[in-house]
Design a protein around this nucleic acid. Structure first.
Lengths: 135, 135
DNA sequence: GTCCTTGCAAAGCGTTTGCACAGAA
DNA sequence: TTCTGTGCAAACGCTTTGCAAGGAC
C-alpha cells in the first residue's frame, strides 16, 4: 500500500515524505475514522518529533488532493478517512462509533428542487450498533 | 406560533420564558439554520441583556426535548433548526448555504448491515445552488 | 424560604497562524 | 541559494463550566 501512496504522490506532484506516508498508512489501516488527536497519539511513538500542526498540515494537503475526506460528527469532532471507495456511514447513537456501510442509494424528484445542481450526496444512518445492542 | 410554543412547553414541563420564546420564534422564522452567534446577534437588540451562555443553555434544553435539531456543517459550524417536519438538506459548495429540500428517500439492503438497528437517517445533497449558478 | 432562569467571567479545547529551523533541490 | 517539510509557541474562536444575582413560586 505504501507503493500505492508513493505513486499517488507522484501523480499529484507532492513529495511522499515519511510523515505523510505514515499518516496515510495509518488512515488506511485504522477503520475507525480517527480524529487529529488520535492520529497524533498513535503515531507519536513511531515519529517522536511529530506535532499536531504537522498532522493538520498533512491532512489539509490530503484534503486538497482528495486523498482523504473529512466527516463531521454530532460531537463537533472532525474525523478523517481515506477517500478510496464510495460508501455511507452508520453512526451509533450510544457509543458514537461511525461504521462504514455499503453505499445507500437515494431517490428524489429533481423537479422539486429546480435549479439545484447536485454533484454529490451523503447518507448517514443513525441507530444502535450490534455491540451496544448486546448490552 | 407562540401559543404553539407555550403549549409545547406545558407538555414538556418546561417554563416558556420570554427568552426561550424569542429564541424558538426566531428559529421558526429564520429559514437559514442559524448559528449560536447569529441567534445572539439578531436577538440582542430585542433582548439587551441576552448572553451567548443563555443561547447555549436554551438550545441544549430544546435539543433535550427534541424541539430543535443540530446540523453539523463542513466548516465545523453548529447550526440549529426547528424539529417539526422531516426533510433533507442541500448544501451549496460555493456559498455554503444550507437549503431545506423535500425528504430524500433511501434504499439499502439491511441484510448487508446485520445487527444494526436503524432508527433515523440523514441525507445531505451537495452541489451548486441556483443563485451561485447564475454567477 | 427553595427552585429555576439568566448571564458574567473564566477555563477548556480544537484549530489556525506566525515564524523559524533543517534538509533537499 | 531557494523551496519545501516540519514543529514549537502563541493566538484564536467556539463551547462549556463555575458561580452568583435576580425572579418566580
Amino acid at each position: 500500500m505504501s507503493i500505492n501512496f508513493t505513486e499517488k504522490c507522484k501523480e499529484l506532484g507532492i513529495s511522499p515524505s515519511i510523515t505523510r506516508k505514515r499518516i496515510y498508512e495509518y488512515l488506511e489501516i485504522s477503520k475507525n475514522h480517527p480524529t487529529v488527536d488520535e492520529i497524533y497519539q498513535d503515531l507519536i511513538g513511531d515519529l517522536p518529533t511529530l506535532s499536531k500542526t504537522t498532522v493538520y498540515n498533512v491532512l489539509s494537503l490530503f484534503l486538497e488532493h482528495d486523498l482523504v475526506e473529512a466527516i463531521n460528527t454530532s460531537n463537533n469532532e472532525k474525523r478523517y478517512e481515506i477517500a478510496d471507495h464510495p460508501h455511507s456511514h452508520f453512526t451509533c447513537r450510544i457509543c458514537n462509533t461511525i461504521y462504514d456501510v455499503p453505499r445507500v442509494s437515494t431517490t428524489y424528484d429533481s423537479n422539486q428542487i429546480p435549479g439545484f445542481t447536485i454533484e454529490n450526496e451523503q447518507v448517514n444512518l443513525i441507530g444502535i450498533c450490534p455491540s451496544c445492542m448486546k448490552k
